[in-house]
Nucleic acid binder design. Structure first.
Lengths: 113, 113
DNA sequence: ATTATATATCGCAAATATACGATGGATGAT
DNA sequence: ATCATCCATCGTATATTTGCGATATATAAT
């Protein structure tokens, strides 16, 4: 039974995993690219740029927002999204620490593989 | 109905998303850390280091293997795993390209948020 | 006031992920 | 040959994700 064991891991591991999950669908990666590229960040333009229906895009936007990677505001008739660079930097920092830690063991003698 | 739309995205986006998915569970992040740290990469030691039952760990190992991030060999009675640095570098390269692309739009004037 | 437009949300269906007990296969020890 | 150990795999239960049609909401236009 899928009891949630995630909380028993280190906070850093959980947080990095959560960020990774936010990037674990090509649509969300594409959305971040679009947001970085366009000055305007109207939802409709994002929908146009993706092979997905509007409700699906809205849902991916919501997940990115939950992960803290984007911010959104309702601007009159339209909605406006942009990247939350503070959170993105935090993610990058976490990943870099992970990356460096992996690299540390890289030169060691392997006794297998 | 959950028809798979993932294939309609760019190859780079799909590949990066797949790598991200491999890191989207703290257990798999922890496993990679352990593999990098220990010279030996016996499965039993991984199980000891995680708050999960052996079949569950085995399953996470399989997913990391499917993503190409680790290699595994059966060595007599025990199994031996280690990080596949070639694939890991490929992942890092993909992420870096993505990261740089995001950063490119960073200084632009935002008309919202 | 009515209508059109842009998005979010609801509700559903299908697919995938998470977790583990039970079991099986292979090796090494006795 | 028997037994113990290590690990993969099967089967199963539950939870989460993905996708979208239908609908609701809120603004802008007429």
């Amino acid at each position: 039974m899928a009891t949630n064991k995630k909380s028993e891991f280190d906070a850093d591991e959980i947080q990095l995993a959560d960020f990774a999950k936010a990037l674990s669908h090509p649509a969300r990666i594409a959305i971040l690219k679009i947001l970085a590229q366009k000055q305007s960040c109207i939802c409709g333009q994002i929908v146009e740029g993706l092979p997905l229906a509007q409700p699906t895009v809205s849902q991916h936007l919501k997940e990115l927002k939950n992960a803290g990677l984007i911010k959104g505001e309702i601007e009159g008739k339209t909605s406006c999204y942009c990247i939350n660079w503070d959170t993105y930097d935090q993610f990058r920092t976490l990943f870099e620490a992970f990356d460096i830690r992996l690299d540390g063991g890289r030169q060691q003698v392997q006794n297998c593989c």
